[in-house]
């Protein structure tokens, strides 16, 4: 890492639980500015929840989340909406507004946050759509797009306001190899050309490793490992190894917690 001042998001001692279950237990991590940071981990470890916490959609039980120096949980509604205009988020399903056309979807944040004249909005929308290669789909409705295309339109919408931070929630899940390749390339080039900070939440190891500058591995509410791609691949702890190499059994057991198998089979009727 270059220097300590370059962290755009700092999370310190943050705890968040849903009902009885602690999703994050006193977790701390820092996201460097202008880089692609990946947050990886098995399903159900609350990676999406982490993005929602950063976006202020939910509040942690304790601890602080600082984005550009502002403590998110302490902001009021107005300030929160203000800072969100500097964040972009790409949702797993794309989350395009189904009653608006592709054009209106991309124009939406521009219309809300700026007072630009109509022809300027039009130019901006075409620029953003060009950068994801979908300028030709401008007239279509979201229901007419394929999954990969919808995600690219959503990406165009997320970068419409040139945000400082762009968060990707499982961008690769359920995509065919071509769409996946396109997305990987897009995340990389957009990050380079626009100079924003990217946070990628994913469990697709190959794709994520190929673009991430720094990786956090999260499991059971803790950061299990962190480092660059090489450092993580060199890690020897069994938990990290199991995840990085995709082994079926290991510290994360194949079997869900259950009483002893033999006893269960013999016990029968109890």
């Amino acid at each position: 890492m270059d220097s300590l001042d370059d962290y755009i998001i700092e999370i310190e001692g943050m705890t968040f639980s849903r009902g009885e279950r602690a999703i994050f237990d006193n977790i701390s991590l820092r996201i460097p500015q202008g880089k692609v940071t990946a947050i990886m981990g098995p399903s159900g470890t609350g990676k999406t929840t982490l993005l929602k916490l950063i976006g202020g959609q939910i509040r942690p039980d304790s601890g602080c989340i600082r984005v550009e120096g502002l403590d998110i949980p302490k902001l009021n509604r107005g300030e929160l909406f203000e800072i969100r205009s500097r964040m972009g988020m790409l949702f797993q399903s794309g989350a395009l507004f189904s009653d608006l056309s592709v054009f209106e979807n991309v124009a939406f944040p521009l219309r809300v946050h700026t007072q630009l004249p109509e022809d300027m909005i039009r130019d901006l929308v075409f620029m953003k759509l060009q950068s994801v290669g979908l300028r030709g789909a401008v007239e279509l409705m979201p229901s007419e797009l394929s999954g990969g295309m919808a995600r690219r339109v959503a990406l165009a919408r997320a970068i419409a306001l040139d945000p400082d931070i762009l968060m990707y929630d499982e961008p690769f899940t359920g995509q065919d190899p071509i769409a996946m390749g396109v997305l990987v390339k897009l995340i990389k080039t957009l990050n380079k050309t626009l100079g924003h900070t990217s946070i990628v939440v994913s469990h697709d190891i190959q794709e994520t490793l190929s673009i991430a500058d720094y990786i956090y591995l999260v499991a059971d509410g803790h950061v299990v490992a962190q480092g660059t791609t090489q450092e993580l691949l060199a890690e020897t702890s069994p938990k990290v190894k199991q995840f990085m190499q995709g082994l079926p059994d290991g510290p994360v057991p194949f079997h869900f917690d259950a009483p002893d198998y033999l006893q269960d089979m013999l016990g029968g009727e109890q």
Partner: peptide, 18 residues
């Protein structure tokens, strides 16, 4: 409900629109 399930409400919130 469908808007919520397809994360449209969340994404609207993230764009900064209530």
């Amino acid at each position: 409900g469908l808007m919520k399930a397809t994360e449209q409400l969340s994404s609207m919130e993230m764009i900064g629109v209530d």
